[in-house]
Computed example of a mutant assay.
Amino acid sequence: MIDRRILAHFDYILLLFVIPLVGISLFLIHELDPVLFAKQVKYISLACGLVIFLFFVPFRKLNTLIMALYAICLVLLVLVHFIGTQKLGAQRWVDIPFTNFSIQPSEIMKTSLMLLLASYIANNPPPKDGYGFKEFVVISIGILIPFLIILKEPDLGTAMVVLLTGFGTLFLIGVNKKIWISLALIVVVLAPVMYVVDPLKDYQKKRIMDFVSDKSPYQVNQALIAIGASGLVGKSKENATQSQSRFLPYANTDFIFAYFVERFGFLGALGLLAWFFFMIVHILSLGFAYGKDYFLRVVASYIAILLFLYVGINICMVIGLAPVVGIPLPLVSYGGTSFVTFMTLFTILENILAFRFVFEYNSNSNKRGPLAQLVRALGS
């Protein structure tokens, strides 16, 4: 039997946000490619099995294992440079021996970094005026190491997401404002130096130059045509010629938003944006609702920021407001890596919420005397 307290603390609203997005994804992918639809169903089945397992993992008590997972992810990121598999001009994957599968360590690192931040901050909560310089440096090292390794792959998009999500979470948790001001000044001063050093690859510079200039990449032009011709309520499958006639590249992955708008029009685009907006606000509100539970605050803040970055970058990329990078639309784009990553993050959040009564019991017990703790234990 499942403890009633687990069901009482479970966040059903998040589940209601996730299920329609998965349904939209399957609908669009099936229209574009039935073969990929079958593969996506397999990815979803795999994610569901992982969700059931992870939901019962006591993450709050796994401080040592969290550190070990973070260290293993760093090792895998380093191994990418030596035995990594190259796809689409970037070396980001590691093949699993004796199987046909490969893993992308940078995706696993997103979950590992979140747990590391949650574990450390929960055990070392910030003072009233925020973290000072020493604690900020310690936490920053944990963020910067994977950022630099991923940047070297090269994977500028994922590296920037890791960097912004990590420091964005710190900003919401609390760091002394003098540190942020000093950091901003350092960035302004070092910006010309970074331009001279020029750490970017040729294809990355081309993407940025295409974005700055009036020349848009082919896929962005085709996406704009699909969006512009969709009208108020979109087109039928047969009339969605940009996608169905294969004029729009990557219509089922990074540019699936363009196909969604082509099918459901301007009103559909507004609805999808509103759906993501309220989903992000809801997740963010969970962190503020339980102010003293820093593990929950970090997890909720991290996921909300990561979701915001993915949605914002992907849509801006599709409509030509950002350089083209490999950032999919969460839970909608085809692919197992991103889907499993976000389902893992959502499951961890649900786990922290559903088993929060254990945290509340322990917290309240710590504030009572030994006799009161004994009486409460006997009473339960």
Rank of each mutant, 00 (worst) to 15 (best):
Y43M: 11
L148W: 15
R356E: 08
G23S: 04
I225V: 13
F288N: 01
I96S: 02
L183E: 06
D129V: 15
L74C: 09
T64E: 11
D293F: 01
Y250I: 08
M279K: 05
L62N: 06
F295K: 00
Q242S: 02
G231K: 01
I256L: 04
V80E: 03
G157Y: 06
I139G: 03
I208Q: 04
Q104D: 12
I13T: 14
A184C: 12
Y250G: 13
F55M: 03
A274H: 00
V233C: 09
N314L: 14
S213G: 15
K235M: 06
F98Q: 10
K205F: 07
L163C: 11
I352F: 05
G174A: 14
W180L: 06
S243I: 00
A251E: 06
D155E: 13
V318A: 00
L15D: 04
M209W: 12
G326D: 05
V75F: 13
I2K: 11
L26C: 07
I315C: 06
Y12F: 06
L272I: 11
G174C: 13
D198A: 14
V233P: 05
M114W: 05
F264T: 01
I141N: 04
E153C: 07
G335K: 00
F82H: 12
P146Q: 04
L224F: 09
N364Y: 12
K177R: 13
I66H: 00
G168W: 00
I348Y: 08
L190K: 14
N221C: 09
M67H: 09
A71E: 10
A184I: 13
V340I: 13
M67E: 12
I352L: 06
V220A: 13
G234N: 05
L50T: 02
S112H: 02
Y43K: 01
A354C: 05
T99K: 04
G166C: 01
V189E: 12
V22I: 13
S363W: 13
I66F: 08
L76W: 02
F278Y: 08
M209A: 12
A159D: 02
L21P: 03
I186T: 15
V358S: 09
L76N: 08
G320E: 03
L172T: 06
F37Y: 14
P154H: 00
S119W: 00
V212Y: 14
M1V: 06
K215F: 15
F167M: 06
L270H: 13
V187C: 11
G157S: 12
K87C: 03
M67S: 14
I24T: 07
N123I: 04
P127N: 11
V94S: 07
L46Q: 07
F59I: 07
A258C: 04
L286G: 09
I181F: 10
A184E: 08
Y294A: 01
V138I: 11
Y310S: 10
A118S: 09
N100I: 05
V375G: 06
A159M: 06
S102F: 01
Y203R: 03
G312P: 05
G369P: 01
I227R: 01
V78R: 05
Q373Y: 02
E360F: 15
